[in-house]
Design a protein around this nucleic acid. Structure first.
Lengths: 189, 189
DNA sequence: GTTAGCATGTAAGGAGTTACATGATTTT
DNA sequence: AAAATCATGTAACTCCTTACATGCTAAC
């Protein structure tokens, strides 16, 4: 029953990670988020602001309203992580399991890999690779037991999909090897 | 205000296209649909069956309940396209515009390209390519005006994303060329 | 005979988008 | 002085998933 992280959870993780770089306000967060989650759908305000409010309520972040400026300026609300938020970030980042390697979730986690142990990194990379490999196998298998010949364009679409997935698997394998090599080069303790 | 097709619309198009191959019941449609839309999320029954009911109401499809079988068998409901459904399929397939080349929609349309005119095919392929190129440009640009140096993993993620998109653009270019060549080889009229 | 897969549905609830509302600041 | 973009929100609505409910059929 492996529940897949809701979008909100993905956003929360990304916000915690981004705020680690320093305080930011909502609008800026949104731009950064769109660049990270990018490629797919863009993040709407109606999604971001409520999430920030929710995170405030659970004390993962704090707000600092920039009120009194020389020129009367509309207050910009600047957010920053709390200690609790940092703890939550670390907890989420050290999760291994489907939540870590489903499509969107994986990208975010990967982006913040610099702040995780190599052990976790390897587990997540391998999990992701297995996940993709499973999909590939399932498709290949179902393709093989399809009796009727598929038409040109359907076949081309399938071919392209499989090729992309295979390339992604290769990418992951390279990353895994790189991690292992760096481990041998710098044996800890 | 280019509204992006709702999932339901995508499903409707896919159902109309699949039923063109011959009558099918819901369960079977779902499997085929998952293979087509695949790679991402799977289609839930709670999504499929209501959509089929809706299509029945609007007379895009008809149902034939297989009731009296030798062995008392639970009725399987077999669906088939109506003339109205065929017309709707053709209308949807000849649409050019964002609805045709946004992520999910594009895949389905492409899969049914065999049943469209080459003129439409070219317009859709080119639209899709332009769409991807825009995204690439936007990312490249935003990347260039980011002052702070990004960390290793974020950079790698971006690199990989850009590479994938570029590869997709190349794929589309090849397809476009193939269409153009086949047009020259077989000049109509 | 029991597990796994075939087969069809519905109701409730949640998540997130769209549309609306407002105003400041910067660029052209 | 207009247009674009920065900036922050909210409410309603829509879609879709999740979970439940039911029963048949084939394989082991």
């Amino acid at each position: 029953m492996h529940r897949v992280a809701r979008r909100t959870e993905t956003i929360e993780l990304a916000v915690l990670g981004l705020l680690h770089e320093g305080p930011m306000h909502g609008y800026e967060l949104r731009k950064r988020l769109n660049l990270m989650l990018g490629w797919g759908r863009v993040l709407s305000y109606g999604s971001l602001y409520p999430t920030l409010k929710k995170m405030l309520r659970s004390s993962l972040i704090e707000e600092t309203t920039t009120t009194a400026l020389p020129t009367s300026r509309r207050p910009r609300i600047v957010y920053q992580v709390t200690d609790l938020g940092t703890a939550e970030f670390e907890r989420l980042m050290s999760e291994v399991g489907p939540a870590a390697w489903e499509d969107d979730n994986f990208d975010i986690r990967f982006a913040f890999f610099g702040r995780t142990d190599m052990e976790i990194r390897l587990r997540v990379l391998e999990g992701r690779r297995t996940r993709l490999q499973e999909r590939l196998d399932r498709v290949q298998q179902q393709l093989s037991l399809t009796e009727k010949e598929v038409d040109r364009y359907s076949a081309e679409l399938q071919r392209h999909g499989v090729e992309s997935a295979e390339r992604e698997v290769q990418w992951l394998s390279d990353l895994i090897n790189a991690e292992r090599n760096s481990a041998r080069a710098t044996p800890q303790q």
